[in-house]
Design a protein around this nucleic acid. Structure first.
Lengths: 338, 338
DNA sequence: ATGAAAGCGCTAACAA
DNA sequence: TTGTTAGCGCTTTCAT
């Protein structure tokens, strides 16, 4: 009796009827088949618009062999490094009609055990793992998977695309050495990338005949960790004139510690970060950092995915992109070259 | 002939057979029906584990009346205000077995016209619009929708949950007035929230008998805009001793401008932001700000959604949460109370 | 408490 | 170029 009851949502049947064609023709138009006459196509498109029709993704997924969507697993929305990755992925995937679905590891923890399960339930056509892969990540063989941004892939059959953290750390360190710094400290944290960066730091320091001093905060790589680590470093090794942090966030903490200790940046202390995240280019930080080329990582990941989706099984590949030093205002030659 | 060809993924049929029951029973177990004997249930669960079975979301969505997922539309992954919103949403939704799908406005722009279309195609059970609603947002009537964080809802039938921006701006301004500041400037930007905050600022200044000075950057609310606006303010009105920025990001820009002009914060210049975003609580900023209570906004949004999904149609509601001032280290009494 | 059977809205052969 | 016809893997009555 209520006139406002929600009408059943239109289906291809309704569209077909309204356009005076068969259901299959509608399906063909939907997927942009070239073998549909212009007249019919416009008729169908018209009917769709009139009825405010939306294709049912569920029905399409169920009937078809493919969902045309790639699942991206990220760690934490606050870690902005994935933003550029997504952009690169998106640009590489869109031309192939592939869409992206993003899932945060922590977010749906209660509903699904792991975002991976959600994506597998969804029958995604491919997966990008933008977190540190854990042993528990079992994916059905044959599903295209690329691990992005992390080299320690333990996902069987997955391609790996990442930046060369060790090289990046060397670039950062050599930049500081080149400026004349000798008391250079490194702020490290947990995780594989941090370890590789610490190794690169140690290598570059050794090559320059300098003693590498590496200090950690509370084990993670947050701003707080950077602050804590920097305080420790500056207090125990006051001769330090430059700091290389495992990432931009930690570098931010180092900046705070420097300010508190009355050290001006870059005059009294040089600071380098890693990632070239959005905060690095702010007026406030003007942080010299290492661009890990996340957009390119995304682009390469997209390429791999597309190749695997279309093609026959191929051996897994690993691509290591060369990071790039981005010099901004947080580094300078030390005051006195002692 | 190749032994490694990907086996067909198991379905309820396979599970049913392996467990020696009917398909329907498997379905019942899947959705936790209480009317299944313990013996059968464990048998089914066992079979699922053995076969590494994953229910097909597509099939479930197609057959069932509901998808148990809520679509959340956000603007830009870089704007971290949505992170807490998601947390609140998640906590409110998970107990009801509802999952969250997040879509960035800009991301799938090429594939789908609007994330909204994607969600409608997906047949979500509800929608959270965490962007400034535009006129083009037509959603099927009967679909639960809540606009979160923005008051200027033009989505018909949608509930609105937001913080009271005008009040928050008054709190921030009154805090500065209370500290003894008289030369207080406001950095504003584009968008509805910024406008409301500017109005609240003007109100509080008028109430204190002070002249409100409001300046914009390049029209947006980025760090760059904050920097530009603050430079303008400090250069044209050097008597300014306090700045209230439309958000934390702009405040960050103001901090940079202050530093450049040789103004120490908070001794020479007090700065207040808005949003209590993750950057505000860093050691580097220690920003006094206004907590817009995004987690609570998410919680209320979840509540509304759940009520609408379960219940009968109800008139649309609008909830305005009271924001809270968070005093940190970026504000202090002015040097000389002139 | 469990099973049988009819779709959900599409895609993908195949026919015409 | 267009129409016909089976399913895809589930949920959901309805029986039993």
């Amino acid at each position: 009796m209520t006139g406002t009851e929600a009408r059943r949502r239109p289906t291809i049947y309704d569209v077909a009827e309204a356009a005076g064609v068969s259901k299959s023709l509608v399906s063909l138009v939907l997927r942009g088949s070239p073998s549909v006459s212009e007249a019919r196509r416009t008729a169908v498109l018209d009917a769709m618009a009139r009825l405010d029709y939306r294709p049912s993704q569920a029905a399409a997924a169920l009937a078809g062999a493919t969902t045309r969507t790639i699942g991206v697993v990220i760690d934490d929305y606050r870690n902005l490094w994935f933003v550029e990755l997504l952009r690169g992925l998106q640009e590489g995937l869109a031309p192939h009609g592939l869409r992206i679905a993003v899932a945060d590891h922590t977010l749906n923890a209660h509903v699904e055990a792991h975002p991976l399960d959600g994506f597998l339930s969804m029958r995604v056509d491919g997966l990008v793992i933008a977190t540190e892969p854990t042993g528990a990540m079992r994916v059905p063989e044959g599903l295209p998977v690329v691990v992005a941004g992390h080299r320690e892939g333990v996902v069987p059959g997955a391609d790996v695309v990442a930046n060369d953290d060790r090289l990046g750390a060397r670039l950062a360190t050599e930049h500081l050495v080149g400026l004349g710094h000798r008391g250079i400290g490194h702020l490290t944290g947990g995780g594989g990338a941090a370890r590789l960066r610490a190794e690169g730091f140690a290598e570059a320091m050794a090559a320059a005949g300098l003693e590498p001093r590496t200090v950690a905060g509370d084990g993670a790589t947050t701003e707080e960790d950077g602050y804590v680590a920097a305080v420790r470093l500056l207090d125990t090794a006051p001769e330090t004139t430059a700091v290389f942090a495992a990432n931009d966030t930690m570098a931010m903490g180092a900046l705070a510690a420097a300010g508190e200790r009355g050290r001006r940046v870059p005059q009294d202390l040089s600071v380098v970060g890693y990632d070239d995240s959005p905060i690095a280019s702010t007026h406030l930080l003007q942080l010299t950092t290492v661009d890990s080329r996340n957009a390119e990582i995304g682009a390469v990941a997209a390429e791999r995915l597309v190749a695997r989706i279309g093609g026959s099984p191929a051996p897994e590949t690993a691509v290591l992109l060369d990071p790039q030093l981005v010099v901004r205002g947080s580094t300078a030659a030390p005051r006195s070259t002692a």
